[in-house]
Structures are given as structure tokens and as C-alpha cells.
Amino acid sequence: MALENKFSEVAENKLYSLAYNKFLSEHKLMGARCKKCGHLSLPPKPICPECHGNELELEEMKGRGKLVAYTVIAVGSPLMVEEGYGRGKHYCCGIVELEEGAKICARISGVDTSKPEQIKIGTPVELDYVEATHAADPTHEEGERTFLSFKALS
């Protein structure tokens, strides 16, 4: 039926959130490059924010970059508390600038969260993934989910 086709068209549109998260679960970090002006959006955007063009193609990120800003969180978000983080087990999240030029917010591993002041901006990082099991919420089924993470290399 025509209506059902439209539902699957939206669900499978590679520039929308559902596809981005499906790719993550296959350990692929995808951005979208504008065919008209070459701007890279990460995560993918259906419309280019630079030139407003709506012809974009997916591009897989190579996964190497550097840490440009970060925090070490002691009072965790509900998601992280569910994974056992919080007051007794701090975690790092930060912003990574990829070699391709785009930046993204992600979990950061391989740093000493007991000495947050010693984590260096500019630290090279490489793509990594974390799998964790979570309860259902309004936008996810119960079960294992894949989370974007970067590992500090030095």
C-alpha cells in the first residue's frame, strides 16, 4: 500500500536518525556530504546547513581525530547510571574533531578520570564502540545498544 511505502521510505532514509543509529550498531560512523558545496554534516543532515542543498551522500568516517574539549562527569546521566557510572565511577565525554574536519560529541576512553586536569586537549583519538544493555525508553526497544566512543592514543 502506498501509505506503508511512505512509512518505510522515512524509516529507511539514510539521512535520518534511525539509519545513523543502525550504522553505529554495525560499527560504522556515517556523515553526509553535500553534493553541491561539499560541506560535511556529522551526524548526517537531510538538508545542508551551508547551502541548503538537499542532495547529500553518506560518507563513512575514517575514525581518527583529536580531542578538542571534554569533561569528566561525577553526577551521571540516567543512561550512564544504568551502566554503573556516577559518584563512585566517573566517566569522560568530550568533543572529537575528526581528520575529515567535522566534530562530534562522544564517550572518551583510555584517559585517567581520577585526574581530569591532566587530560590534554589535542590528544589523538581513534574510533571505538561501547555496547551496553538498556531498558526500553520511548525511542528504543529494550536490549543491547551501541554507543559511539573514542579511545585516547597517548
Binding site: 565525554c93 562522544a106 586537549i121
Partner: peptide, 22 residues
């Protein structure tokens, strides 16, 4: 952002702390 910041475990103190380190 439900696709990046929430899965990263961000909180609002964390977001502003990130601005602080920058």
C-alpha cells in the same frame, strides 16, 4: 541531541564543563 549528546552520557553541567575546558 538525542543522537550524540545523550548517548555520550552528557549532562548540562557536562556540556558547560566542556565549554569550560575549551
Amino acid at each position: 541531541d538525542p543522537d550524540t549528546e545523550i548517548p555520550a552520557g552528557e549532562t548540562f553541567p557536562g556540556i558547560y564543563a566542556t565549554i569550560a575546558t575549551a
